[in-house]
């Protein structure tokens, strides 16, 4: 039985046995390159659930939307490895209760990045997509291409170490285990090794693209402040223009607000309508957190998030030099 069939069966059981009031999954959307979130409350709706290379959305954002809309409900959720870490983080940060969530892990081989597919089709519109595992076939008017899966994966997937949910109630297939990933820090180290002026220039160019739509913030499961700092206007912390002097501040502060909380799912980067490389800075901060506090966000349900904990022996560079 493939993952999608398995997932549909599990959702049906959970719904029919009233183990959950609602199940969050993915279904085929109106466009071929992206699945769309599915909210299942009946057995019939469960038959629309899918899991494939287009299921990029991290569904745990919906726990904290509209001020914890599902706080009193039992909610089931389909998760990739990164999404599971978001659910765990939401639990550790007391946004949801473990006993109210049924976590269903799916075996993930990475999700696509729209811009990489469009680069492969040289901008031609894709009208149909098929996920064949190692390859992904895309069709459009007058063309059909078989793309190597690795070439179209989101940069977050290339950097992924934990493709499987570490915390789950059900798992739909075979877990891949930890993926040794020597190359994952290369982009970050290369950037670090640049002279200051080049780093600044690259940062400025990147964040200058921002149009302040906040898609990155709103798809981020770790961004759930009741009032975001950019929306506070008494006092006003930051300008709202798309001058880079404002946009850089927005992105750097968001970056620091998710330090030790970013699960590196890449949802921000895939959502960005302006193709800003948002992930590198977040991954750099995650590296720092791991190095200084030994913590990987959302990995351990019995742990404490790095920024909510203090150990006497932890490395404090800013004091000890």
């Amino acid at each position: 039985m493939n993952t999608t069939d398995n997932l549909r069966k599990t959702i049906k059981t959970l719904v029919s046995e009233k183990k959950v009031d609602l199940f969050l999954g993915w279904e085929k959307g109106s466009l071929p390159l992206a699945a769309t979130p599915l909210f299942v409350t009946t057995e019939e709706e469960a038959d629309r659930a899918i899991f494939d290379v287009t299921c990029g959305n991290n569904l745990s954002i919906y726990f904290t939307k509209d001020k914890k809309q599902y706080a009193d409900k039992k909610v089931g959720i389909a998760v990739k490895g990164c999404d599971a870490r978001s659910v765990v983080l939401n639990i550790l940060e007391k946004q949801i209760k473990r006993e109210n969530v049924v976590i269903v892990g799916v075996p993930c081989n990475g999700v696509l990045d729209k811009k990489k597919v469009l680069a492969a089709t040289e901008g031609r519109e894709v009208l149909e997509l098929m996920d064949n595992g190692d390859t992904v076939t895309v069709k459009g008017k007058g063309f059909e291409l078989s793309l190597n899966r690795q070439e179209i994966l989101s940069s977050s997937c290339h950097a992924c170490i934990y493709p499987d949910a570490q915390e789950y109630d059900f798992f739909m297939g075979e877990a891949r285990g930890e993926v040794p990933n020597e190359e994952r820090v290369k982009e970050i180290v290369d950037f670090q090794n640049l002279p200051d002026s080049d780093r600044w220039e690259q940062t400025r160019v990147e964040y200058q693209k921002c149009i302040r739509c906040y898609a990155c913030r709103n798809v981020c499961p770790s961004c759930y402040c009741n009032v975001c700092f950019v929306d506070q206007n008494d006092p006003k912390w930051i300008g709202s223009t798309c001058e880079y002097t404002d946009t850089v501040i927005f992105h750097v502060i968001r970056n620091l607000h998710v330090a030790g909380r970013c699960v590196e799912c890449g949802a921000c980067e895939r959502a960005c309508p302006m193709d800003i490389n948002l992930l590198m800075m977040n991954r750099k901060v995650a590296m720092e957190v791991k190095d200084r506090f030994g913590d990987v966000a959302g990995l351990d349900i019995d742990g404490k998030p790095a920024m909510s904990d203090f150990k006497e022996d932890e490395k404090q560079k800013f004091i000890m030099g």
Partner: peptide, 10 residues
């Protein structure tokens, strides 16, 4: 499913 970003309006 709306996440209330401004990508559509912008």
């Amino acid at each position: 499913k709306c996440i209330n970003c401004g990508a559509c309006t912008f």
